[in-house]
């Protein structure tokens, strides 16, 4: 063997990231399926910066937008499962395949950890006659089809969540007319302008108008009180319902990730979640912290998926 080729072989040995124990040896790409500047982008970026510190390699955030999240999610799912491409998964992944918009679902990924959940809260205008969720439910029962709700696209998370609540309360989902909107802010605006009567959404989304005294939050559909508005009653306190659904975000990687790499990443995500910086960041933005480890996260996604599918089929949204 000539000397140059020997040198080349040595170089190749050194450069080759063959052993997972050495992982990571080069920068990691962190895919965010939504645009720069939004809420998912912010959570993704803080996570990426904390992971970078933990893993000792650069973690570069790449926004792969388009297709209402599908493009970015599929970029994560279809990346090489070598631990150098991970990303943030959002609730849409449990919903869009029911509408026939993608084949991907929660099982297309290696879950690394759920980090955020913002449960549905029910908002009305500040001068609305409905003081409690009970009042509102009675009004819907008495005059089906009169009240109108908005806050997301047709078949979006808040639409499905409201219909789930109505079904659980044995009210036909059509009893509330859904007015599609581009985002929760547009729905809230229409609420304040008097165009609609109800806006289901998360507390961080409704925050500014609730603080401004324009919008009243009647209840939060979760077992625990809201982190932003602890005085708002939970579903159980208001009408005795345990129904819960919300917008969530978690960290995921492509399927078939080698076990040692997956464990390394899962531990890093857990440490990032537990860090003071993350807690402070989430509190500032008003986002709900919620942890689920890999197995629980997978089970959580499967459960959500089933629940969403059932409601969407009942609504005629599934294809």
């Amino acid at each position: 063997m000539t000397r140059p080729s020997l040198a080349f072989l040595l170089l190749a040995l050194v450069a080759c990231p063959c052993r997972a124990a050495e992982y990571p040896t080069r920068p990691i790409t962190f895919i965010v399926p939504w645009g720069a500047g939004g809420g998912t982008d912010a959570v993704g970026r803080i996570m990426a910066s904390l992971l970078e510190r933990d893993l000792g390699r650069p973690v570069n955030v790449v926004n792969r937008t388009g297709g209402s999240g599908v493009v970015g999610h599929s970029a994560i799912a279809h990346a090489r499962p070598d631990g150098y491409t991970i990303g943030i998964l959002t609730v849409e992944i449990a919903m869009m395949h029911h509408q026939g918009l993608t084949r991907l679902d929660g099982s297309s990924f290696t879950p690394l950890g759920l980090v955020n959940l913002d449960p549905t809260a029910i908002q009305v205008r500040a001068d609305s006659p409905y003081q409690t969720l009970g009042d509102l439910m009675n009004a819907i029962r008495e005059q089906p089809g009169k009240l109108k709700a908005s806050g997301t696209a047709r078949g979006g998370i808040w639409h499905v969540s409201l219909c789930g609540l109505l079904r659980e309360q044995r009210i036909a989902p059509e009893a509330v007319v859904w007015v599609p909107s581009v985002g929760n802010a547009a729905g809230l605006l229409d609420l304040v302008a008097g165009g609609v009567d109800i806006v289901p959404g998360s507390h961080p989304e409704g925050r500014s108008l609730i603080d401004a005294g324009r919008v009243r939050s009647l209840a939060i559909l979760d077992d625990n009180p809201s982190q932003l508005y602890p005085a708002v009653p939970t579903g159980a306190q208001a009408i005795g319902t345990r129904w819960s659904m919300g917008a969530w975000r978690g960290i995921g990687a492509p399927k078939r990730l080698p076990k040692p790499i997956a464990e390394r990443l899962q531990a890093a995500v857990k440490r990032a979640y537990d860090s003071r910086e993350f807690a402070e960041f989430m509190a500032q933005r008003g986002f709900g912290r919620k942890w689920a480890g890999p197995e629980e996260f997978a089970a959580f996604m499967a459960r959500e998926d089933e629940q969403m599918g059932e409601i969407m089929r009942a609504l005629g949204l599934a294809r």
Partner: peptide, 9 residues
């Protein structure tokens, strides 16, 4: 959309 994901939005 002609079945493409990229054209969905």
């Amino acid at each position: 959309t002609f079945g493409t994901e990229a054209l969905m939005s």
